[in-house]
Nucleic acid binder design. Structure first.
Lengths: 237, 237
DNA sequence: ACAAAAGTGTTGACAATACACCCATGT
DNA sequence: ACATGGGTGTATTGTCAACACTTTTGT
C-alpha cells in the first residue's frame, strides 16, 4: 500500500515516469465504405511509417483534452462523436518500462472529412478499412479493438448515425450497417425496424437528379433516441 | 507532433511525469446481495477513509500485472474474472497536473471471498452495494461506472456466472440477475431461456437439508458459451 | 417500355411473457 | 396437512426474416 505509506510519512509521492500517449482511431464513411485516418510520420530515411492520429499528454492536459486536441487538429471542427476505448499497455520503445496508450475512437461525418493541404502535407490520409496496412503492433491492435468495439456499439446504440450526413436516406443508413457489420440486410425489414423505433424524422426532402425513384431524406431523432437508450436496446442483425 | 520531432532529432523523449493508479472494483455476491470490497486507509488522525482496492504502477509493471497483483493481494487466488473499465482522469492531489487512474472491475466467487485476518487488519471489508458510503469523488465515479458497466455486461455476456459458486441452482442465478439489474423476473421463463441457450450443464447433484424440495445443481457450460459469445447474444429483461 | 432503386404488404417461424398447476421435503 | 420453494406445461402475444409486389424516375 504505497499510496498510504507515502501519505502517512508525509512524503511527496514520486510520480511514476511512464510515457502516456493518446491514440485516436478516426472513422469516416463514404460511398467507398468505412475509412480510417492514418498519418505517415516518415523517419530519417524517409521510410513510410503509418500510424494512428496520436499525441503525448502534455503538462496541464487531461486525457480528454488531449484527445479533443487531436480531433480538432485533423478534423477542424467540434462536430464529431468520440469515446474512449480503454488503456493499452506495451513494452516501451524508449526504456525498459511499459508504455501506456489510451485509445479513443471517433466518428466523423463525410462533410467534415475533407483534409486540408496542410494536413495532407503532414501525411494524413483516409484509408479504406480493408486495405492492408503495415501498422506497428500497438496501433494495429488498437485499430482491431476499435473495429470490434464499433461493431458492438452500433448494434447497441445509435452512434452509427454519427457517420452519416445530417440528412440521409434509409438505404444509406442500411449500407452503413452492412459495411461495418459485414452482413447483407433486407431493405423492408430494416426500414420497419428504424421506423418502429422512431429513430428518424422525415425532413420532407428528396434526392434530386437520380436516375431512379428519388429517396426521402431523414434525420436522426435524438430526443427519441435518448429515451430509448436509457432503457437499453439492440439491433440484432 | 512531439513524438515525431523527438524521433527525428534523435532526442530521448522526456517522459510525462504523471501518477497512474490502478483502481479495482471487486464484486462478490452472496445471500445478502451484491457486495464490493473497500479498504479503509486511515489518515494520520485515524479518520476513516474508505476507497477501492488500488495501487500505483511500479517500475517494470504493466497495467495488467498491477491489477492482477491487487486481486491476488485481496483475494489470494487466481480464480476470478477481471476486465478493464477504462482510464479516468482527475485533478491530482499532489500537483497541478492531472492524475490518471485506470479502472478495473473483478468478479469473485463467494467461496473465494473470505477475508483473512491480515486483510481485515489492513482495513478490507465487503460492503453491500446499496449501503451509502463516503468515497472520494474519484472512487465514487469509478464505482458508479463499474455498476453501469456490470449491468450492461451481464446481459450481453455470461460474465455474471463468475459471481456464482462453481455449482449453483437456477434460482441462485436468477436472483443474481434480479439483484444486479434491480428487476423482478419469472422463474419458468428464466429457466427456459438458460436451458434453450445451453448455458448450463446438469451436474447430477441436489441441495441437501433444505426445508423444501431440493433444487438441482448446475455448472456453467463454458464450451457452449464461447460459441454463443462469438456470435454475440443478449438477454433482454 | 425498361432498368433501377424506392417503398409497401403479407406470411410463417420462433421467441418472450403471463400464468396456472404439479412436485418434493421439513415441520 | 401445509408451507415453501422447485419445477412443468400451455396459450397468447410480439418480433423477425423472407419474399412478392407496387411505385417513381431517368434514359
Amino acid at each position: 500500500m504505497k499510496k498510504n505509506d507515502n501519505r502517512k510519512a508525509g512524503i511527496t509521492r514520486q510520480y511514476n515516469t511512464i510515457g502516456i500517449s493518446i491514440d485516436c482511431v478516426i472513422f469516416n464513411f463514404d460511398d467507398e465504405g468505412l475509412k480510417v485516418l492514418l498519418v505517415n510520420e516518415k523517419d530519417q530515411k524517409e521510410n513510410e511509417n503509418w500510424g494512428l492520429a496520436s499525441d503525448w499528454i502534455s503538462e496541464g492536459e487531461t486525457i480528454e483534452s488531449t484527445s479533443n486536441k487531436i480531433l480538432k487538429k485533423y478534423i477542424g471542427t467540434d462536430n464529431f462523436f468520440m469515446e474512449q476505448l480503454k488503456a493499452f499497455s506495451y513494452p516501451s520503445q524508449y526504456s525498459l518500462k511499459e508504455d501506456i496508450s489510451i485509445g479513443y475512437y471517433a466518428l466523423v461525418k463525410k462533410e467534415n472529412s475533407v483534409l486540408s493541404n496542410d494536413l495532407k502535407a503532414l501525411g494524413a490520409r483516409w484509408f479504406k478499412i480493408d486495405e492492408t496496412l503495415r501498422l506497428n503492433y500497438k496501433h494495429h491492435s488498437i485499430l482491431e479493438y476499435s473495429l470490434k468495439e464499433l461493431k458492438k456499439r452500433i448494434c447497441q446504440s445509435g452512434i452509427g448515425f454519427n457517420l452519416l450526413p445530417e440528412k440521409f436516406t434509409l438505404l444509406q443508413a442500411m449500407h452503413l450497417y452492412e459495411e461495418i457489420l459485414g452482413v447483407e440486410m433486407n431493405k423492408s425489414n430494416f426500414r420497419r425496424k428504424i421506423f418502429q423505433m422512431g429513430l428518424v424524422l422525415d425532413v420532407d426532402e428528396k434526392e434530386e437528379d437520380v436516375s431512379h425513384r428519388a429517396a426521402k431524406f431523414y434525420k436522426f431523432n435524438i430526443e427519441n433516441y435518448e429515451k430509448l437508450a436509457q432503457r437499453g436496446f439492440n439491433f440484432k442483425f
